[in-house]
Amino acid sequence: MITSTEKINEYYHALVEKNPNYDGIFFAGIKTTGIFCHATCTARKPKIENCSFFDTAEEALLAGFRPCKICHPLSYPKEIPDEIKQLVLEVEKNPEKRWQECDFQKLGIHSATARRKFKEIYGMTFVQYARSRRMGIAFKELSSGAKVIDQQLSTGYDSASGFNDAFTKIMGNPPKKAEITILYASIIPTPLGRMFSLSDEHFLYLLEFMDRRGLEREIEQLRKKRNARILPGKTDINQQLSTQLEEYFTKRRTHFSIPLFLDGSPFQKRVWQALNSIPIGKTSTYQKIAQQLNNPNAVRAVGNANGANKIALLIPCHRVINTNGELGGYGGGIERKRYLLDLEKEKRND
């Protein structure tokens, strides 16, 4: 989400003026209607305080906005094929649905075709689109749910266990066990986009960029394994986290001091410990980490453990690059990885 006051004023002016030069440059989320539009939408213009602006449609979807039926922002800059229009409509009929191969077959559409054409037009696959819409609904429910819980608590309701979490409709209920874990969700803005955290009063369990492809699966696994309900709320942990992330991105912090709940195998935990030993401003490789663990043949296993890390930035998997010096992959996206490494080099040189 765009937070610069200068950009917000610029984009709002373009929205009011229906300036065609800005079509495709930003997407405007309208808080009062829950839709997002492009610059030349003919709908009645909202007040600036009721607008959120995004660089991409995926960000708008993850923020809980749905495509406007007047300006069809997902069709810009080209007319989209009929089968893609149909898929967008089908998602809106049941946005919480998880799509399977048989669902495409019922519509007479090949899943590979949908994947390719969505990628060409939107820069994301259909699965990403449907997932972003699902997760956007959950994130939006978390935001609105926080207000409901605050209101209930203020009138004497003192137990969070009576509330359904925002992910239940999407992922189902966690298994019924004797003990329920309550994890509190927080959305933290950063210069690289919003991050999603889960914590209790003692530990941080998860921290990821909200557009990470594997986030939905990570949340589901955590809910099932910990028999967890996820509710909106602030803990000492996520408040400390918010402060420390702000200090990190403004070059005032080089190390984090948040207690972490490491949910992994003994080998994975050893890899994550090795990641934490990489000095800020430096990088390592899977091969070096395998050697550090006295298991030089475990390069692939090290890579898998690196990918299984659920706590971005604090466990610095972004500091692992390819043996040939190339950046390699990163769950948060290669551009974020480049930004983080450059930021940390600047910190080291300060």
Rank of each mutant, 00 (worst) to 15 (best):
G193M: 10
M210Y: 01
G172Q: 12
T283R: 07
F54T: 02
P296A: 12
G64M: 04
E58H: 06
V299A: 09
A274P: 02
A305T: 09
N276A: 08
A114C: 11
S242H: 13
T5D: 15
A312S: 11
F54A: 02
Q221M: 13
T5I: 09
I25M: 03
M124G: 00
I35Q: 13
I280G: 05
G325K: 11
S257E: 14
G307I: 08
G24I: 04
W272V: 00
Y22A: 05
L61T: 01
V148A: 13
A308H: 13
E10K: 12
M1P: 06
L275C: 09
H13F: 10
C68Q: 10
H38R: 11
E90D: 09
N304H: 14
Q273N: 12
N19C: 06
N227M: 08
K97E: 08
A146Q: 15
Q273K: 11
A28D: 06
E83L: 14
T285N: 07
H38Y: 14
P279M: 03
K282Y: 15
L241N: 02
N322D: 13
V88M: 12
L260H: 03
E49L: 02
L74I: 12
P232K: 02
G325C: 04
N238T: 12
V91K: 00
T56L: 12
Q244G: 07
A305V: 10
I289A: 00
P266Q: 13
L293V: 04
I149Q: 08
F203S: 12
R116K: 14
E58P: 00
I188A: 06
E90M: 04
A63Y: 03
A274V: 09
A114N: 09
N173F: 09
S143T: 14
N294R: 13
K345H: 12
G156M: 14
A112H: 10
H318Y: 15
A166H: 01
S242R: 14
E218N: 14
T190C: 10
N297G: 15
N349I: 06
F27C: 04
T125E: 09
P67F: 01
P279D: 05
R133W: 01
R319W: 07
R212N: 15
L204D: 06
T181I: 05
R134G: 02
S75D: 14
K234C: 04
R252L: 00
I280H: 10
H318E: 04
F104L: 06
F167R: 05
S161W: 04
L61K: 01
I48M: 12
R212D: 13
R229M: 03
K93Q: 14
I311F: 08
N9V: 01
A43H: 11
N9S: 15
F27W: 15
G233Y: 10
K169T: 01
S257W: 02
E79G: 06
G233K: 12
F261I: 00
H255P: 00
T181N: 11
